[in-house]
Design a protein around this nucleic acid. Structure first.
Lengths: 205, 205
DNA sequence: CCTGAAGTTAAACAAATGATTAAAACAAAA
DNA sequence: TTTTGTTTTAATCATTTGTTTAACTTCAGG
């Protein structure tokens, strides 16, 4: 018997996964060669197949991890019965912006993957059945927020939170700003996006 | 001497471009094989190189076309001195939604390309120097719209207009709606997005 | 020290892929 | 019809790429 890795992060398996995560997330499945992964990980090419059988199997693991980044946590937020409707919006935006500041390539990866293999998207947690949606309808009925197709609400929250990350290079190019300035713009949005969503939902008299 | 193509659309060159446009836009450079393009176009493989020298040269042509779809027209709208600030927002949103309903794959293509080759993005027309931006600052100074970093305004207009197309498969999956329902949701947004932007900009007393 | 399983390596393989070639088909002009 | 330049084709080439093989190393347990 043998204690597998003394240090989990320096194990060969983990080195390959880290390299694959970086390259697949940045460039997508088709653009990455197995040799790129091996050299990025600093390991022999054959070890990739030894540990993960194939490029596709390895990609699938990375994909599930990235989808997790994207969807995990959201389910918890939207189904918490103790937080208010607007509080949930704040938490959702904060969650996305915070997460994506550390994983800026994940949005494009997930959007691409969603288009290439829509059937692989996790269907389990249905946003439409969430407590968040129930709260939305309650607020609408009470005349406290404007009525709208709930799809629009979701698209708006996600669009305002996620799009700036998917479009980061384009935004930086058009506006000519540095990474630092871009980051502080995103941090500002944690506070601003919920306020904007609130304005959208305000009932005009 | 010979009159090149009797019918421009049925010329070999145009058939190749049409096939390449479809495949590159849907799947990106790395995922498309030259043989896929040839078979989609119904032509001999060698003709691709005969007309376009290489896969890369052909891709560059498609990329410039798609970037054109994305940026052309915008310059005209934002620099028109005759339309009001809010009218421009209406025109921008309508322009994007209308265009993208017919080219739903273009946003992801452009976002990917912007990340892979940011230096190739057209820099020529600087949105920040546009008449639209001048109007924005005028409105702010007059106390008619809320002050904010203009980057946020651009991100919000584009995010609310473009994101739902980039995320189409994900939205359809999460909401479980058909292409038809999705389309009418997008058409609704032509009217709603400008209203929402207006709410965001409203000065609270 | 010996054994055997797990880990690692260089080399090789077969298929895929972008590109080229040389010959054939075609069409217009002479 | 013959000629000439253009377009199209099947076949081939040289690399690249995902995967496998077989030999070598490492090291814990007997």
């Amino acid at each position: 018997m043998k204690a597998k890795p003394l240090n989990a992060d320096s194990s060969t398996e983990e080195k390959i996964k880290a390299a694959a995560r970086k390259l697949f997330t940045q460039q997508g499945f088709a653009a990455v060669r197995t040799r790129d992964i091996a050299s990025e990980a600093g390991i022999n090419l054959a070890l990739l197949n030894y540990y993960f059988r194939s490029k596709e199997k390895l990609f699938e693991i990375i994909m599930l991890e990235n989808l997790g980044h994207f969807f995990q946590g959201v389910a918890i937020i939207v189904n918490d019965e103790k937080t208010s409707f607007y509080k949930k919006i704040e938490l959702l935006v904060d969650f996305y912006v915070t997460r994506l500041l550390n994983n800026p390539d994940v949005p494009l990866f997930v959007l691409n993957e969603a288009r290439n293999n829509p059937q692989k998207l996790p269907m389990q947690f249905n946003l439409m059945d969430s407590f968040f949606m129930k709260q939305f309808f309650t607020e609408v009925k009470a005349g406290k927020v404007k009525a709208m197709n709930p799809g629009h609400l979701l698209i708006n929250i996600m669009g305002l939170s996620i799009f700036p990350f998917a479009a980061k290079p384009m935004i930086q190019r058009v506006r000519g700003i540095s990474d630092k300035e871009y980051e502080s713009l995103m941090i500002e949005r944690k506070k601003l996006v919920p306020e904007w969503i609130k304005s959208m939902l305000e009932v005009k008299k």
